[in-house]
């Protein structure tokens, strides 16, 4: 996958296409595909992606990574302990926004969204100066929006 060309996976915040573990309940998905389904605004998704990427290599990253993210602690430790101090992720483009699922929970509309992000890691290497590496990967975001109770 393109992710492997980007960097050691441990340095990425939420690399690759990651689906939350779903050991149970596969039959529960109702056949209500079109009913009340509102795709998430791509502009909102892009803004969210930029917020998450901006927090990479900072303590704020932790708040964005789902508790069910596979090997979450290992990934966060790798960023905290091994990422270059000057490293930052620049979002080059955001596309391919697809709302995978949507549900109403306690006055909120909870959507899972797949988005394709082309990003660039930039850092200063003490020996070789400015470095950049580009990669494209799919990410899954969970977007929660407050909605009036029906």
């Amino acid at each position: 996958m393109i992710l492997k060309k980007f960097l050691p996976a441990a340095l990425l915040l939420a690399g690759g296409f990651c689906v939350l573990p779903a050991l149970a309940d596969p039959a529960a998905e109702p056949l209500t595909h079109a009913e009340g389904f509102v795709p998430v605004d791509p502009a909102l998704v892009e803004e969210s992606v930029r917020d998450v990427f901006e927090s990479w290599n900072s303590p704020a990253l932790e708040q964005w990574v789902a508790s069910a993210f596979p090997r979450r602690d290992r990934m966060l430790n790798a960023v905290a302990g091994r990422a270059p101090v000057s490293g930052r992720l620049r979002v080059l483009s955001v596309g391919g926004v697809d709302t995978l699922s949507q549900a109403r929970e306690d006055g909120a509309l909870v959507s899972r969204v797949k988005v394709t992000v082309r990003a660039q890691l930039e850092w200063e290497d003490p020996r070789n100066g400015f470095q950049r590496q580009v990669g494209t990967a799919d990410y899954v975001l969970r977007i929660v929006r407050q909605v009036p109770r029906p």
Partner: peptide, 17 residues
């Protein structure tokens, strides 16, 4: 029920595609 989704771009930007 029917649902049709499309997302795509028309572009010449190497940053986009």
């Amino acid at each position: 029920s029917w649902r049709i989704d499309f997302a795509g771009a028309l572009t010449d930007s190497p940053y986009r595609s």
